[in-house]
């Protein structure tokens, strides 16, 4: 069972991801703000975190920075989901330094995301 924490403020997108993660292979957990995401990560210790960049409270970048600053969450791989092409730039310039391993563009194609999650989990 791969435990996935998704941090995303749009309930529809969370629902979509829940559908994608339904079944025996994944266990989905959901948080809607940056601070909620951080707390959930610390208490759940998921295998993978999927997060948006624009979040209430504080954004994905800050969330990742905090996760990497915390011993218990430092090693958890993070997948960044962002709108349009700002993803590529941000990942390359700033987030890559924070050891984010992948990014996914919106609109998220669930089949691709599931494949990506399997690949990361296998590593």
């Amino acid at each position: 069972m791969i435990r996935v924490l998704s941090v995303e403020d749009d309930p529809d997108l969370q629902r979509l991801l829940a559908l994608a993660l339904a079944g025996d292979e994944f266990e989905g957990h959901f948080a809607f703000t940056g601070p909620e995401g951080f707390e959930a990560a610390v208490s759940l210790k998921p295998d993978i975190i999927v997060c948006d960049l624009m979040l209430p409270g504080y954004g994905g970048q800050e969330l990742i920075r905090r996760l990497k600053g915390e011993a218990s969450t430092r090693a958890i791989p993070v997948v960044v989901v962002t709108a349009y092409y700002d993803a590529a730039t941000l990942v390359e310039k700033e987030i890559r330094k924070l050891a984010v391993i992948e990014y996914v563009r919106k609109p998220v194609r669930c089949a691709d995301l599931v494949k990506l999650l399997r690949r990361i989990s296998a590593q």
Binding site: D10, D12, L13, L16, L19, A20, A83, Y84, K106, P107, V108, R109, C110, A111
Partner: peptide, 19 residues
Amino acid sequence: LRSPLTVAQAAVTNLVDGM
């Protein structure tokens, strides 16, 4: 405008993908 558009695109795209 982009945010809801992206959600709608995601829903439709995944249906088309056979989800």
